[in-house]
């Protein structure tokens, strides 16, 4: 008796479930007329240097029961531009037509770039892309994370990579540092590789901060050891260093000249000897 009750109960439940299922199935079928829209990207944040452009690959999925045109609308941070392109055939796009019941996504590219003249500050720039068709819309955020560029160069003011020097003297040459990056570079220090006992002095001996685009002059004094340095060519290497960036070292050929004093002394010696010999030949040659 109890078993028949249980069976009955189960039958009712199953009947009800079946009905519910039928009802539910009906409800889904009624909604699929409008369909589902999806706008996704695998990499929503791209990182790059200032001035770079960022190419996002975006997928649009539509499995609606009817074919629809979707407008693609971008909203951009100031001084940024965007370009929507599809891969093949390459062309710029502004809207997409999606077939009904399409079960695979359409992929296209969104290229986010700063306007040509600008070098965006480091930071996150968020652009939004909206796909809209009537009241049906989907939005994703695409973020260009602009990182700072630390870069500067060190060259000689004249552009020549050689200098003349006299032992014991202060022989100066002018260097320039130019911040070619996008970020302020702080605490640039200098060092050099040189002959033992030489002195190479940078004035100023450090640069506290160098803002992007700014040029800073540095004077280098090369002082070859007096009285010991053989005249001739020497290579010295000048280096600038900072925490964030160190440019290529500058290799300068230093032509050490004979100190003027010794130059004169040597001329005097030679003249004295020639004069002395002449006197000898003249005096002794006369009879």
């Amino acid at each position: 008796m109890a078993r028949s009750r249980l069976i009955r109960f189960l039958l009712v439940v199953s009947l009800l479930l079946t009905m519910f299922a039928a009802l539910a199935g009906h409800a889904v079928a009624a909604q699929s007329v409008t369909g589902t829209l999806d706008l996704t990207t695998q990499f929503p944040v791209l990182r790059g240097k200032s001035g770079d452009s960022y190419e996002f690959t975006v997928s649009l999925t539509w499995n609606g029961s009817e074919t629809r045109n979707f407008d693609l609308i971008t909203t951009l941070p100031p001084q940024w531009t965007a370009k929507l392109t599809r891969a093949y055939p390459a062309s710029e796009i502004a809207s997409i037509r999606m077939e009904a019941y399409r079960d695979y996504p359409e992929q296209f590219e969104l290229t986010l770039a700063p306007v040509s003249w600008s070098q965006p500050e480091p930071g996150e720039y968020v652009a939004t892309l909206e796909a809209r068709s009537g009241d049906l819309k989907k939005t994703i955020e695409l973020t260009a994370a602009v990182t700072a560029v630390y870069s500067f160069v060190m060259t000689t003011e004249s552009g020549n990579l050689n200098m003349e020097a006299t032992a014991g003297d202060d022989n100066s040459t002018a260097l320039v540092l130019v911040n070619t990056g996008t970020a302020r570079i702080e605490n640039i220090t200098f060092s050099s590789s040189k002959q033992e006992d030489w002195e190479v002095i940078f004035t100023p001996d450090r640069v506290a901060a160098l803002d992007p685009g700014v040029t800073q002059g540095v004077e280098v004094i090369v002082r070859p050891l007096a009285g010991k340095t053989i005249a001739g060519d020497y290579m010295i290497t000048l280096r600038a260093e900072s925490k964030d960036y160190s440019p290529d070292p500058l290799v300068i050929r230093v032509t050490v000249l004979t100190p003027a004093f010794w130059g004169w002394i040597s001329i005097l010696i030679v003249i004295a000897i020639i004069a002395g010999l002449s006197v000898f030949f003249w005096r002794l040659g006369r009879r």
Binding site: I230, A231, L257, T258, I269, I273, L277
Partner: peptide
């Protein structure tokens, strides 16, 4: 004369007394 002359020329060339 020779040693001095040579020294003078050398001095001029190498710059080291």
């Amino acid at each position: 004369a020779l040693v001095l002359l040579v020294g003078g020329i050398g001095l001029r060339m190498i710059g080291v007394p």
